[in-house]
Structures are given as structure tokens and as C-alpha cells.
Amino acid sequence: MSRQMKLLFCCIALMLTMIAPTLAQDAGGGRAMTDQEMAIAAAVAECPMDESITLAASVPGLNFPFFVHMMNQLVAAGEGLNAEVIQLDGQNQSTKQTNDVETVVNQGVDAIVISPADVQALADPIQAAIDAGVPVVTIDRFVEGVDGLIAHVGAENVLGGEAQGNWILENYPDGAMVVNLQGQPGAGPAIARNQGLHNVLDAVAEQYPIVVEQTANFARDQGLSVTESILAGMMDNPPDVIVAANDDMALGALEAVEAAGLADQVAILGFDALPEAIARVADGGLAGTVEQFPGGQSSTAMSVAALYVRGCLDEAMVGQTIFLTPVLITGDNLNLAERIGEVEGM
């Protein structure tokens, strides 16, 4: 990066800090910010950021569009905080991510922002980093049994699953047959999202039975083939709602439902609010998708890390869990979707 570019970024960073308080009120296009987020934004505005710092950003795997977006947002947030960001791709393997963490600790990075691939496998390297004096913020995914985390920033996946369940109760007051497409068995978000849906529907299981429950491993081709197989067994009596634990599976299910000529009868709910899913919510293909604000999470996590490194983070805020409230995006509140700008013609 040339000197002029660096200077430019400094200027942008400075400008951002000046307008940060105004941004705080309606960041994310009308999304309501929590008190914690407002406090962090205010602290960022007051913290002097003349000195450049180096932050490592590690995600489970850049083969998932969700994490590509998160990484882009982490890097963008870093630029606004006058922080150089080292990008680390875990390639969906705990061992790769462990090695990455060990490498940047040896390298002498100022802080690490990490979305751990596994709740347990990453505990040791993260604890080792903290013990070596490198502050760590976890984002989106938890890690278990680690002492001394600066913060965890995330969206409560269980609440997202509950939002899907509540949409069904509201839109099918007389009951509905539900098909549940689960994520990759054993993955944290898959377990939590499934839990959220069951939290709502199990209490009213007689009216809202989950008639089929299958995994499609978060993959679009499996979302398609599993839904085809499910529908083959239910052609005489198709389900009312298909709930998918991510958008890829929902988009695959949509292909199967449209091919079976059931698009008018079966509503599909996705999760993650990917641009493609937002576009399909807009044109009525999908009934809705859960937005967890990965961009909001990213900027909050990077802010907390930068504040801590610069000594600006309030004692009381250290060690907290910062949750952003997930929102179900439907045709009525499309403007809340974080990535709506990536959909052309909106």
C-alpha cells in the first residue's frame, strides 16, 4: 500500500470516527442497535486512533459465502479503525485454524478476532494466545472453556430459529405441516437453529407437526435432492412450510418445490439473508430469511478489539457477550437486510 493510500485511509478513518455517533442511531438501514453497540460506537468515536495496529481476522472457511462476506466486512471495519488486518482462512479444518492462530501469535499481532470452526478444538490455541498476552474476541461462533476473552460478539442462533417458528404460528393460525431441513450434523449453528425452531413448535406439536426432519448439510444440491425425495412421499398431502437452517438449502428446496408445481402451496424459510435469498424473498419465491447482521457483528467485534488494544475499552465492558438481535426478513421489511445493496434493481 502506498503512502498516499495510507494517508487516505487515515483521513477516512478520522471522518468515520467523527460521524460515528450519527451512524449509531440507524446503522444497517433502520436496524435497532442495542445499548451495548451504541456504547461501543461512542467509545470508538472518542478513542484516538493515530497509531496503526495489526489485527488478525480468522474465519472457519472462505468456501462459504457467509464467511467471505464476514471477512470482507472485518477488513472494511479494520480500515475504518486504522488497523491492518491479517486475513486467515481456516479452510473448514480446526487444525488449519489452530496453526493460523499459533502463527500470528508468534508474529506478534496486537489482537485476534476469530470465528472458531469448532467450539472445543479451538479452545486450546485461543487460550494459549490469551496466555501469551494477545487479546482475543470471538465472533458469530462460541468457543467453550476459555478464560479471559475480551468479548464474544454474535447473533443468537436460537433466537433466529425461534423467529422462523414464530413466523409459522403467525401466518398459519390454524396449524401447519412443517418440514425441517437441518444443517450439517454436529455444527454449532445447525444445532442452535434447530433448537430454536423446536422451542417454538414442540409446545404446539399437535397443530404444527414437524412431519419430516432431514439434514441437507447446509448444501444447495442436497437441499434440492432431499426436498425432491421428501415431496415424492407427500405429493397427495404436501407440507405447508419448509424451514431450512440456511439459505443454500432453502434455495435448493425452492428448485424442488417449483419443479413439483407446488410453489403456491409451500412456503419456504431460509436463514442468513444472503443476497440471492433476499432477491428471492423480494420476488416471492422464498417467504423469508433470517438476518443475523454479519456486517454489524464484524464492525462491533473489530471495534472492541481495537478499543482494547488502544486502552480505550471500559473495564466494565471487558468479558461481555454482545448479541445482535436477529430479524426475519420478509417482503414487508426488506430494507432491514444488510446486503440488499448487492441485489441489483433494489
Binding site: 468456501n63 462459504f64 459465502p65 448444501a219 444447495r220 444440491d221 434440492l224 443454500d248 434455495l251 435448493g252 428448485e255 440471492e276
Partner: peptide
């Protein structure tokens, strides 16, 4: 054929 079938080419396809 997979891209055509899904109506999308994904970087994770075929894992």
C-alpha cells in the same frame, strides 16, 4: 450440468 441443474455455480459445489 450441476450448475445448470441448480441454476447457480457455487464455489462449494462438489465437495
Amino acid at each position: 450440468v450441476l450448475s445448470s441443474r441448480l441454476g447457480a455455480s457455487e464455489a462449494v459445489a462438489g465437495t
